[in-house]
Simulated assay, not measured.
Amino acid sequence: MAEVRHNWSKAEIEEIYNTPLMDLIYQAATIHRENDDYAEVQISSLLSIKTGGCPEDCSYCPQAARYHTDLEVQALMQVDQVVIAAKKAKEGGASRLCMGAAWREVRDNRDFDRVLEMVTAVNSLDMEVCCTLGMLTENQAERLAEAGLYAYNHNLDTSEDDYKRIITTRSYDDRLDTIKNVRKAKISVCSGGIVGLGETTADRISMLHTLATMTKHPESVPINALVPVKGTPMENQPRVPIQDMVRMIATARIVMPKSVVRLSAGRTEMSLADQALCFMAGANSIFAGDKLLTTPNPAFNEDMQMFDILGLKARESFKEHKKATAELQD
């Protein structure tokens, strides 16, 4: 059984990342089989509840107000619209709904009150609820927890050294502070990064090092392949080679053996064989549905066909909570 460590050095992670690819996949697959049901994949659905008009300058994001993309700005959705979307996602096989709002940070106003209502409503459907709303204070995290929030997504995107090249309107410490506030509220942490921003291998290793040396590893680690969007500074970035995604997923699996590693954005550009390699390397979560906030994603039925071919199965909602409750009763 792989040991869960929090004292990884960058040199150790670099050595893992640079292992010959077939050996790396084998090592990650072995650890994955020791720690979890390797054929079980957690399916999330991502819903943009407030689209565009964001004051941030994230170089990859079409939702930034300063970039001229074809994105149509949309106001915050109504609670009943979100419930309809959640039910559709659940029927498609999703056990978690992640709601994203294009905000720099959460403000204590009527919009936040409405988001809290959304969280409570989706939670009542026996779905795990995740939000990604920007920066959070400790009090706001507590309010989300009280409403029934299961997880909060706040990606690091890249390394601390590389961060200022990608985003100037907030700092790396701002990201880490929000994650700490989420932890204090006892909400599950979802945090990972994006591959293909023009970062170096050292940046990728550094980002994984930051995640793997946290006092508690994120329960979910999304590994995204950049989807270049016309009108953003990253529009001409080349497509990420599949071997880079496999290396990131495998390394994340080895250094954070108990975390769910999510094969996130960029799947529309991947073949079935590409995705199979990622699952073999330790990925055990995907986003399903035809959109990831504002970028294309494979439809539910395509993913179910893939699951059937590869012998994968959907993970039930609240599995860890149900497992812990059963152990207490025993």
Rank of each mutant, 00 (worst) to 15 (best):
E91M: 11
T158S: 14
L156V: 10
A147C: 06
G148I: 01
K87T: 13
N109I: 06
I167T: 13
A94T: 10
A147F: 08
N109T: 10
R165S: 15
A121I: 01
R96I: 04
A145R: 14
K184G: 05
R170S: 13
D161C: 02
E117C: 06
L125D: 09
K180L: 10
E146T: 15
E91C: 10
L97P: 02
R96Q: 13
D177H: 06
D108S: 13
C131R: 00
V122F: 00
V182A: 08
E160N: 11
R110C: 09
R170T: 12
Y152N: 05
R96M: 09
A102Y: 04
C130L: 02
S159Q: 03
L97Y: 00
N181Y: 09
D113A: 14
K90E: 13
M127S: 13
W103A: 04
S95N: 07
N155S: 11
A85G: 12
V106F: 04
F112W: 12
V115Y: 00
A94L: 07
D126V: 05
L116I: 08
R170Y: 13
T137D: 10
E138D: 15
T137F: 09
V119F: 00
S171R: 09
A151K: 04
V115C: 09
E105W: 08
T132N: 11
K184D: 11
C131V: 13
T168G: 01
R104L: 12
G100H: 07
D111K: 12
Y172C: 09
E160S: 09
Y152C: 03
A147L: 10
K87M: 12
A145Q: 15
A147E: 07
I167W: 08
V129Y: 00
D177N: 14
A121M: 03
D162E: 09
L144M: 14
T169H: 10
E160R: 14
R165E: 14
M77C: 11
Q81A: 14
E128D: 04
T120I: 00
L125S: 05
E91F: 11
Y150S: 15
C131F: 01
Y163C: 07
D108R: 12
T137L: 09
E160P: 07
E128L: 03
H154Q: 14
A151M: 10
L176E: 06
G92P: 06
Q78H: 12
E146M: 09
R183P: 06
D80G: 04
R165H: 13
V129W: 01
R104P: 00
D113Y: 05
I167Q: 10
V82N: 04
E91P: 05
N155F: 05
L116D: 09
C98E: 04
E138Y: 06
L176T: 11
M135A: 14
A85P: 07
G100V: 15
H154P: 04
L133F: 02
Q140D: 08
G148D: 06
T137Q: 07
Y172M: 13
L125K: 03
D111P: 05
D111M: 08
L136M: 15
V79Y: 00
V182L: 11
A121S: 14
A85Q: 15
C131E: 04
K87F: 00
V182H: 06
D174A: 10
G93N: 08
